[in-house]
């Protein structure tokens, strides 16, 4: 039973309602589904729709994406064109008109493909709380969430240099399906070998994870089939896969190296 839906018109008011125990809601694609099924754990909802947290700003290679910017807005942003394929792999266009960037950080795996991308991008999450604002690394937010009473207001990221962004999502259908394995990566090369690598995986753990073992395999070596196969096998040390309606843990583990390789070589 929902007793109140707050629609604060400022971040300060949103923080106040969140601190009082209201469940934060971005686009409603998760929270309203829980309302409809009677499984929402809170009687009070705090919608961020009017809190002034929308919009995408880009200054050079640095982008700041408001927490309530929709996935459609990211998809249509010329400056964030590198994310277009990844965003289009998320749900349907209709859901993308509603789902928000901030909300995507808190959806359970195997959903949350944009969060996987933000992990690979080493994004910074802007968080407002009763004691002011702070920036938090996205991996910390994905691992620990934010404190009660805190509100994610934006994410900041560096747009990767051309040719350094890689994304692949394996799913049961070509459109509108959750990740069996999602791979997002920023990998720089110089002199024919990898000089830096950040690889994030979705669908293979309770939350998006860095494939640190795979990253170590790649450093100093060329992006070639046998190296990537070795990195993909190494990445199995970084995952904690689960069974669900989309795939078994066994299957996810089995195909991870294939999709990691294909993220880079197609």
């Amino acid at each position: 039973m929902i007793t109140a839906v707050r629609t604060p018109e400022s971040v300060a008011d949103a923080v106040g309602h969140a601190a009082a125990g209201g469940r934060l809601m971005g686009g409603g694609t998760v929270v309203m589904a829980q309302v409809n099924s009677g499984s929402l754990g809170s009687p009070e909802i705090v919608s961020l729709r009017r809190a002034g947290l929308g919009g995408i700003g880009v200054d050079g290679a640095l982008a700041r994406v408001g927490a309530t910017a929709t996935l459609t807005e990211v998809e249509e942003s010329p400056e964030l064109a590198f994310l277009r394929d990844a965003v289009r792999s998320v749900a349907s266009p209709t859901i993308r008109n509603q789902a928000t960037v901030g909300g995507n950080l808190f959806v359970p795996q195997p959903y949350g493909d944009l969060a996987v991308c933000l992990l690979a991008l080493d994004a910074t999450v802007e968080v407002a709380g009763p004691d002011g604002s702070r920036g938090a690394p996205v991996d910390v937010v994905l691992a620990n969430g934010v404190a009660p009473g805190e509100v994610v207001t934006a994410v900041r990221l560096a747009v990767p240099a051309p040719g350094t962004w890689f994304y692949r999502k394996a799913m049961r259908r070509k459109l509108n399906s959750a990740a069996i394995v999602a791979v997002a990566a920023v990998v720089e090369t110089g002199g024919g070998v990898v000089t830096s690598a950040r690889i994030a995986l979705g669908g293979v753990a309770p939350r998006p994870v860095r494939a640190a073992s795979a990253e170590r395999v790649l450093i100093g070596r060329p992006l070639e089939t046998d190296v990537l196969d070795e990195a993909g096998r190494a990445a199995r040390a970084d995952i904690a896969p689960f069974d669900d309606a989309y795939a078994s843990a066994w299957y996810r583990t089995r195909v991870l190296p294939v999709h990691l390789r294909r993220a880079f070589l197609g």
């Binding site: 839906v5 629609t7 809601m25 694609t29 309203m32 919608s47 459609t72 209709t94 008109n97 509603q98």
Partner: peptide, 19 residues
């Protein structure tokens, strides 16, 4: 599905007080 300010949305997921 209905159009909310011109965009298709799942109307079951829109809390009506917020719009």
């Amino acid at each position: 599905t209905v159009l909310l300010d011109g965009r298709p949305v799942m109307s079951c997921l829109v809390a009506v007080e917020t719009v």
